[in-house]
Computed example of a mutant assay.
Amino acid sequence: MQLKIFTLAGAAVLALAACAAKEKPTQDDTAGAATGGVMRDEAKAEPETSPVTPMPAATVIQSQPGPDGSQVDLLSVKVTGDILTVTLRCSSPERYNRESIRVAQVSVIDDATSQRIGVLKDNEGNAMVSNLNRSSSPENDNMMVDCTSKPGVMWAKFPAPPATSPTVSISLPGVAPFDGIPVQR
């Protein structure tokens, strides 16, 4: 019985010693790697990187005073295909300042033709704006925006003016007009 325990203990010591010793790869080991054998490499520490890349600060095209002491910044006026997208940002020194903008009163004016262009609607008749608050009548639908100390972003989509119209003016209720804005194409 003592011989079996001694033999088991000796085998365990030899196994631990073999694990602790570092072996250099032999020609057989490198050949095994080329044929799909298992090779062990030391793990290399990856440099710490942020999982989210912060967006660059938005360039403000123009700013206008808005309702209840807020400020509305025009961020982009861009045509993609046949759609013009207007992106704005609203901010306010007030801690709680939510604005409700009637969609039927939001428009883009083609400066070349003086034509008023209303907000696009999708196949279900919903206005294509951010944070749409539907009502019983489409004329009373609202675009909601949170203008607290952390700026709220809002957008609206319109049929694109013709390529011969280099600028547009943007009209939102309660906000001073954004006039003569170049259209990015």
Rank of each mutant, 00 (worst) to 15 (best):
M143A: 10
V60L: 04
Q105K: 15
S76L: 04
S63K: 04
A156H: 01
L172H: 00
M128C: 10
P93G: 12
G66Y: 01
S76K: 05
D179I: 11
T30F: 12
P54D: 04
A9Q: 13
G125L: 10
A57G: 06
V145F: 01
K4W: 13
T59K: 13
T85W: 02
P177L: 08
A12H: 04
S50H: 09
A33F: 11
G118K: 12
K78C: 06
M144P: 00
P159I: 02
V153F: 03
W155P: 00
A45V: 09
R95N: 11
T7Q: 15
Q27K: 12
V119M: 08
V60S: 08
I117T: 09
P151D: 04
N97Q: 10
V106K: 02
P25Q: 06
N133D: 15
A17M: 14
S136W: 10
A160I: 01
K121S: 11
K44P: 01
A104L: 14
K150Q: 11
R116I: 12
R98D: 12
V129A: 06
N123V: 14
T53E: 11
V103Q: 07
V52T: 12
T49V: 13
D28P: 01
S76P: 02
V108E: 02
P65C: 04
L75G: 03
A20T: 09
N126S: 13
P51S: 06
V52N: 07
T85P: 04
P162W: 02
N126P: 00
T113V: 10
P56Q: 07
A127T: 05
P151W: 03
